[in-house]
Design a binder for these strands. Structure first.
Length: 435
RNA sequence: GGACAGAUGGCAGAGUGGUCGAAUGCGCACGCUUGGAAAGCGUGUGUGCUAGAAAUAGCACCGAGGGUUCGAAUCCCUCUCUGUCCGCCA
């Protein structure tokens, strides 16, 4: 949520910065509407308070005069006469306040000054690359072919028990997924200083509003309306909201969390777009990194967080590139984002396995997450960040496709071998992994 | 799912219709005291909003929302959460 004071003080500046976003031209009208609402709200608020003040003063007087045995009927009738007008202003103030908040919840974050300006994904600059595209002496297969042949991936069963865009991992395939989860969490806790958390997968609406999935993206989220709960589309939601409505002690910052959760996404409207195999699923596993920092530290924290995610791919020996999202491609709540894309030989393309974003105080404002500034004694909104460290399904794709051998077996990277318990995955072993 | 009890400031804990943003204690900050510290003494110590250039003033907030009343932390209703017991279950 944007700061209403900022909008009030520099509406044109806000509009200009929003205009660089995808669909940004339409946002100027929203900003104007917010301003009008703010004006009406403050006027109603002032009138309301004037009457309340008068009422309080007279009620006190009535109390004292009654104690003194005087007749107060006239004064009581007079105060009662305030009620209608007071209620009117109260209603107006309330309505304007709710409307203003609704409008603000629908306005995306301002892109950071450092965010490259561009129209769409084509304008995203490449920041760096690591490793090389592997060269094969044979035509590389894709992960569906490899995983199905090895008995690791079973799409048919998933369709039978649930539907399309779900998968069953089997045998050593399931074990590999579990191994990756453990490996990622181990690296981030041991080497990068994150605290492991295992949060609920179901969250209430306020949490989703806090991280800005709601109200705008309701159609992308699985809901359990009878209970007012939603399946979290990412661990970002429960983990960042760990500190909602809280004033965090400054000496506890930065807070760093790593969390494994499954992620549930309806992917409405995405049917048919790159849907083969594990690439776009309604449920996938992800290890997420979340940071809460003081405002001054957030940009450096984004760089660190991105490096932490990259480190995973480096240890697995997977070629990747880092791109920065331009203003036109930036996510709703983000002020600056790096995407990490891993090379998947079977797809002959890069796959987004991590999106690392700094949200500034945008989410903190929505969830009222503050810290006390030790220098001024004032409460300030914290900055929040998150990034996948990394998404598992697409990592799985890249791993299978990069590590495949001519006979269709998978030669695991060194670091995973202790976790999986084998060096190579072959058809014969697939369904009877060693324990 | 059923029954009962509870929710007040950083914490503990008073307060059952009026001058209560809220006693008291602890904690914390500053000052005095001291060679230094402790103890002791004194002062201060919530958040948000509105108006204002500011000093400051006002309004709201005692789990949340509604109601009664001239006036609600206090009375009534609904909900949420916590605790205890019962049932059920992994």
């Amino acid at each position: 949520m944007l700061d209403i004071r900022l909008i009030r003080e520099n509406p044109q500046g806000v509009k200009d910065r929003l205009a660089a976003r995808h669909g940004g031209a339409a946002l100027a009208a929203l900003v104007d509407e917010v301003l009008a609402c703010d004006e009406a709200r403050r006027q109603a608020e002032t009138e309301k308070q004037r009457l309340q003040s008068e009422r309080n003063r007279m009620s006190k007087e009535i109390g004292m005069r009654r104690k003194a045995g005087e007749d107060t009927a006239a004064a009581e009738a007079q105060v009662k006469g305030f009620a209608a007008e007071l209620a009117e202003w109260e209603t107006m103030a309330e309505r304007a306040d709710v409307r203003q908040r609704d409008l603000l919840l629908g306005i995306p974050n301002l892109p950071h000054e450092a965010c490259p300006v561009g129209h769409d994904a084509a304008a995203n600059p490449e920041v760096r690359t690591w490793g090389e595209k592997p060269v094969f002496a044979f035509p590389p297969k894709d992960h569906v072919t490899l995983g199905t042949a090895l008995g690791m991936l079973d799409f048919e069963s998933a369709t039978r028990i649930t539907g399309s865009a779900f998968v069953v991992y089997r045998g050593v395939g399931a074990r590999l997924e579990r191994a990756l989860i453990n490996f990622l969490i181990d690296v981030h806790t041991r080497d990068h200083g994150y605290t492991e958390v295992l949060p609920p997968y179901l969250v209430h609406a306020d949490s989703l509003i806090g991280t800005s999935q709601l109200p705008k993206f309701a159609d992308q989220i699985y809901a359990c309306p009878e209970d007012g709960l939603y399946l979290a589309p990412t661990a970002e939601v429960p983990v960042t909201n760990l500190h909602r409505e809280e004033i965090v002690r400054a000496d506890r910052l930065p807070i760093r969390y790593v969390a494994y959760t499954p992620c549930f996404r309806r992917e409405a409207g995405a049917a048919g777009v790159g849907t083969r195999g594990l690439i776009r699923m309604h449920q996938f596993d992800k290890v997420e990194l979340v940071k809460i920092t003081v405002p001054e530290a957030s940009m450096a924290a984004l760089e660190d967080l991105t490096r932490h995610a990259e480190n995973i791919l480096q240890q697995l020996g997977l070629h990747y590139r880092v791109i920065e999202l331009c203003t036109g491609d930036l996510g709703f709540g983000s002020t600056k984002t790096y995407d990490i894309e891993v090379w998947a030989p079977g797809q002959n393309s890069y796959l987004e396995v991590s999106s690392c974003s700094c949200f500034g105080d945008y989410q903190a404002r929505r969830m009222n997450l503050r810290f006390r500034d030790p220098d001024t004694g004032k409460n300030r909104f914290a900055h929040t960040l998150n990034g996948s460290g990394t998404a598992l399904a697409r990592l799985y794709v890249a791993l299978l496709e990069t590590c495949q051998q001519a006979d269709g077996s998978i030669l695991l990277p060194e670091v995973l071998r202790p976790y999986v318990g084998v060096t190579e995955i072959r058809a014969a072993e697939a369904d009877c992994p060693q324990g």
